[in-house]
């Protein structure tokens, strides 16, 4: 009875659209036929996506993007959590600042980074004045730099959350464990390696999948900072689907590309559900 409103609402606005997405993916749908009967074309859209050389590169870009976001997000998040375990005003303020930045709309964070990464922006000004570079780094205007720049900003946006979660997990460790380790002469590094890493392992698994998914479905920073460009350099799978549908008005093709992204998400969801289940069984 308590589930009924959710079931009706999500059925109408989440599940029905997904069914429609699949139907559109196997049909020919353009702006003119959006609300008319669709011609069934089977896997033609998917094939067209691959043959025109759009889908393949988009998949590899998505993988690079996800790997950069996940590696940075997890490692820096864990490192920051260790650094912010300390009590004191600075740690408390810094944590609050980071969570505030995390809570800001992605458009705001994306805008300011677009500004900082500009040819005449802060980063390039510093690089030029210290003599590390003779010419500005084209962070957002270069085929190769752009994907990494946007992935970095995505990681920047997810690090505070990961820090918060890792920090909460570290706080559950009994302080006596550290005291005992110190008495035994364990170094800081050994404490991290042998006490902290093992004790956050269950958390790490859940967080890893959340970060993977976050990187995978990300589009807002791409939209704000590069809009998929330069050329197609930051067209990840989800963003390519969006462009195909709403810029080129080829809804069928866009739906097919997005359906591929949905399949990717389904795989991650299964892994996630299994790790959650294991944790609930343990706890």
């Amino acid at each position: 009875m308590f589930l009924l409103p959710a079931a009706v609402f999500l059925g109408l606005f989440s599940l029905y659209p997904l069914v429609q997405l699949v139907r559109m993916a196997v049909s020919q749908v353009t702006a003119a036929t959006l609300n008319a009967d669709w011609v069934l074309t089977g896997l033609d859209n998917v094939r067209r996506g691959f043959e025109t050389g759009q889908t393949g590169p988009a998949i590899s870009r998505t993988l690079v993007f996800v790997v950069v976001v996940t590696v940075l997000g997890m490692l820096v998040g864990f490192g920051a959590a260790i650094a912010l375990r300390t009590t004191g005003r600075w740690s408390a303020w810094l944590l609050a600042l980071m969570v505030f930045v995390w809570a800001l709309p992605p458009v705001v964070n994306g805008s300011v980074w677009k500004f900082l990464l500009n040819d005449a922006g802060l980063l390039n000004t510093v690089l030029l004045s210290t003599g590390l570079r003779d010419t500005p780094v084209p962070f957002l205007y270069d085929q190769h730099w752009a994907l990494f720049s946007v992935a970095f900003v995505n990681a920047f946006a997810v690090i505070p959350f990961n820090t918060l979660v890792f920090r909460a997990a570290l706080m559950t460790i009994d302080p006596e464990v550290f005291e005992a380790a110190q008495l035994d002469g364990a170094s800081k590094w050994q404490q991290i390696r042998h006490i902290m890493v093992p004790s956050v392992r269950p958390t790490t698994l859940v967080l890893l999948i959340l970060t993977l998914v976050y990187g995978f479905r990300s589009f807002d920073f791409i939209y704000v900072m590069t809009y998929g460009g330069p050329g197609t350099a930051t067209n990840t799978l989800p963003f390519l689907g969006y462009l195909q549908a709403f810029v080129r008005y080829d809804y069928g093709l866009g739906a097919a590309t997005s359906a591929l992204a949905v399949v990717g998400v389904l795989v991650l969801a299964v892994v996630y559900a299994r790790s959650i289940k294991r944790e609930e069984a343990d706890g």
Partner: peptide
């Protein structure tokens, strides 16, 4: 976990 870019097409 659904990408928002995937839901915006059928919702539109």
């Amino acid at each position: 976990m659904m990408p928002q870019t995937a839901t915006v097409i059928p919702l539109f």
